[in-house]
Design a protein around this nucleic acid. Structure first.
Ligand code: MN
Ligand code: MN
Ligand code: ZN
Ligand code: ZN
Lengths: 155, 155
DNA sequence: ACAGAATTGATACCAAATATCATATGTACA
DNA sequence: TGTACATATGATATTTGGTATCAATTCTGT
């Protein structure tokens, strides 16, 4: 059974102790040898403040005091360390959001941009089997699911 | 059961009667009101000549006598009319290949770039169910499967 | 043929992202 | 507590992939 997990929508309440989230992520990075810098904290803080999937450019716009290159680098680092996951919209626009760890996929609302995680990827076995049947050895997959969230489906 | 379909690899023999493929596609386009033009035929012919997923830029390079805009427009038209399908690599590079009709997904070899179609998308029901459980109404999905083809898996 | 719509392609333009590289800053350690 | 030096930053230039313009050309139906 695929279970619904964290919802990311503009309607939810502000994340409790956003500073704690930042400290946690900075800590994880420190453990891996990455420095604790002011611009980095600003990027992480801005990421944590987003209510729904955001673009790199949106993040840049919300961080006028941080260089563009630094924002992009920070985002890449966060993705590489699994702190942030990438979300691909139907029009191929790339967005990001805080990761809730582990391999999972996204339900994306085409109307309001909200997303929900589909944790526990049950398609995995089916895909591996199909890949084997085709003579392939599967190493991974990418899946995004598009539709309308409950609110946007009404009307 | 997900079945293996057409293989697209550099190792296969040249497609028989490539001209027939072009005529067929031009015919389909004509039926929909699109004109039979020389540049269009050149684009279709080049598409049909590819042995594996190709980028728009690669196609442009192989068609120095056709304008870039025309190549892009031709490719877009072929995608819109389901003659060609889009393939997304792990690094987000967008490629194209002749479509074997209907909704399906791709098995992509990370080593040699070969692809195989997974026809009959059995994940559909599972995803719709999961989406419903999360309060979404699913309208579509995008799935790519990565790995190694039989040849590249050896060694 | 002809008219008129569709198509083309040179060019300009745009957005997203990366490469450069001189400067600034964090961290380990003497 | 200072210092050395690797790491990180950010202004800027560049690259990549793709779209908008628009005058000229080419199809297609009559
Ligand atoms: Mn996610
Ligand atoms: Mn395909
Ligand atoms: Zn919505
Ligand atoms: Zn291969």
């Amino acid at each position: 059974m695929v279970a619904q997990a964290q919802r990311h929508s503009g309607h939810e309440h502000p994340r409790p102790r956003s500073a704690a989230v930042v400290d946690d992520i900075v800590g994880q990075l420190s453990d891996r040898g990455y420095r604790d810098t002011e611009p980095r904290r600003l990027v992480i803080s801005a990421v944590a403040a987003q209510g729904r999937p955001f673009t790199a450019e949106e993040l840049c716009a919300s961080l006028p005091c941080v260089g563009r290159a630094t924002v992009y680098r920070g985002l890449r680092l966060l993705v590489e360390t699994d702190q942030v996951c990438r979300v691909l919209l139907e029009d191929r626009e790339l967005r990001y959001q805080l990761s809730h760890q582990g391999h999972h996929h996204h339900l994306l609302c085409a109307v309001c941009g909200a997303s929900a995680d589909l944790e526990g990827c049950d398609v995995e076995d089916m895909l591996r089997e199909a890949a084997t049947a085709a003579g392939f050895r599967m190493s991974g997959h990418w899946l995004e699911v598009y539709g309308r969230c409950g609110e946007c489906a009404e009307g």
